[in-house]
Design a binder for these strands. Structure first.
Length: 431
RNA sequence: UCCCCGGUAGCUCAAUUGGCAGAGUAGGUGGCUGUUAACCACUUGGUUGUUGGUUCGAGUCCAACCCGGGGAGCCA
């Protein structure tokens, strides 16, 4: 007896196989039951005939509750009437565990209900497709890093102090009377890693305790942070553009069916193959003025400003050289213009907003010490970070990419909460 | 933290001016010649978020609180 999964049925036409899954739906008539079996790899219609099973075996199969776990044995048939092109002519149906009344139906549900049932919601077709795309994005990133000879160097989750000194962090008690924080970014550690290995990256969860309440925010999200020694802002921008192009290409190539399930506009994604526009902060401000949008040079972009700029391009847009006041202390200043920092943000198209933030780091010890003081940060806490400038400092840079925002954009989803298996948000930490 | 919206059956929602709390769906029963969110008939199911107030009478009006959603700020 061949044990297989729904996605491989095409290799077994005419054979008798065994499938293990859950009952996702059922349609019945007097002579036939159509049992829809979902096994994680796909869903297949299994035909149960009264004639073959006999009345006694046939009747109860019309009453199996939804989401009961089943094994079904049957002959694989290619059939144009079946969704997916194949169906199983059942010869045996065994119930592993009969489900209680399943709360999630095929009809609409509200976000509160679905989020409270996230552990079950993950079973639904759209969520499975989305998780596959998330997996593909992560796989593409790791493959891209491997191809570019970056080393994966994981950053710590517990940190002794704020990385950037700006965001609100989650505090945790760290033995006795010591306080630790959940990491907000692995970047500073990646700078150490880049000095050790040349090219390094981390990919893991990060935490922000800000009380943000929008479709783009989670309190726990995953971030990919590559960092390169001997690199400048242009190298960082090249890496960011190549990375996004590679990720989108991988999803288009390998997850077409899932994009279809999500009804994603494929043409919008295909435009990512074209070069990404790169404009300076100052040019972006000028463009806003041209559009009659009020904005004063020197401030950071708000949601509306970002939306306006990204709406001008079908590709992700790179905005570089921001006023240094709005950027973190470790950003290197532009040697051409002292008011500017060599930072870059990448805005995803279609209104999805910032997916990447990064830039070139300050590599001069004296300047960095000055910036720490100016930002009111303790030199003692950052002593190890300053060491990186004491012992063989080089120009270097990198960026952070928000995994869920990237998945959200590529999959065309409304809210990042669906783009992580178990979202953590303001006022929601269950299940 | 601020602004806006909402909370009625397991779920999605309706309920006119303050006047008997309803539908679809899920669950149950029966029917149906291969169904595609199957369909048809019947049927179970209610502390209207909580507390208080106004009123002959409150799902509806008022107050406070609780919970959730959307957005802003901040960020990825």
């Amino acid at each position: 007896m061949t044990r297989t999964t729904v996605n491989h049925l095409g290799d077994h036409v005419g054979e008798t196989v065994n499938l293990e899954g859950w009952l996702s739906n059922r349609r019945s008539s007097k002579k036939l039951h159509f049992l829809l079996l979902r096994d994680g790899s796909g869903t297949v219609q299994c035909v149960v005939s009264r004639e073959k099973f006999g009345d006694e075996a046939f009747e109860p199969l019309g009453h199996i509750p939804y989401e009961s776990s089943l094994t079904i044995e049957g002959v694989v048939k290619a059939d144009a009437r079946a969704q997916g092109g194949y169906e199983l002519e059942a010869t045996d149906v065994r119930v592993i565990s009969e489900a209680q009344e399943y709360p999630i139906s095929n009809k609409d549900h509200g976000p509160d209900f679905l989020l409270s049932h996230r552990h079950l919601w993950l079973r639904s077709r759209k969520q499975v497709a989305l998780m596959r795309i998330r997996d593909e994005v992560l796989r593409a990133i790791r493959g891209f890093m491997h191809d570019r000879e970056f080393l994966c160097i994981d950053a710590p989750i517990f940190t002794p102090n704020a990385c950037e000194g700006t965001s609100t962090l989650f505090e945790v008690n760290y033995f006795d009377d010591e306080t630790a924080f959940l990491t907000q970014s692995g970047q500073l550690y990646m700078e150490a890693a880049a000095m050790a290995y040349g090219k390094a990256y981390c990919l893991g969860p990060t935490f922000r305790a800000e009380k943000s309440k929008t479709r783009r925010h989670l309190t726990e999200f995953w971030m990919w942070e590559p960092e390169m020694a001997h690199s400048d802002l242009d190298d960082v921008m090249d890496l960011a553009e190549d990375a996004l192009r590679t990720i989108v290409e991988a999803v288009l190539t390998n997850r077409g069916e899932d994009l279809e399930v999500l009804k994603r506009d494929i043409e919008a994604l295909e435009r990512v193959r074209e070069p990404f526009p790169r404009i300076s902060y100052t040019e972006a401000v000028e463009k806003m003025h041209e559009k009659g949008h009020e904005f004063e040079w020197g401030g950071d972009f708000g949601a509306r400003d970002e939306a306006l700029i990204s709406s001008l391009y079908p590709q992700p847009v790179l905005i570089h050289r921001y006023p240094q006041e709005v950027k973190a202390f470790y950003m290197k200043r532009d040697p051409q213009d002292d008011r500017l920092a060599l930072g870059v943000d990448v805005l995803a198209p279609e209104g999805y907003g910032e997916v990447i933030g990064g830039g070139q780091r300050e590599d001069d010890l004296d300047l960095l010490q000055g910036r720490l003081r100016a930002h009111g940060l303790s030199e003692e806490a950052f002593a190890w970070y300053l060491d990186l400038r004491r012992y063989g400092s080089v120009p270097h840079g990198g960026f952070g990419l928000g995994i869920e925002r990237t998945v959200c954009w590529i999959a065309g989803i409304e809210h990042v909460r669906e783009c992580i298996p178990f979202p953590r948000m303001l006022y929601r930490i269950y299940p």
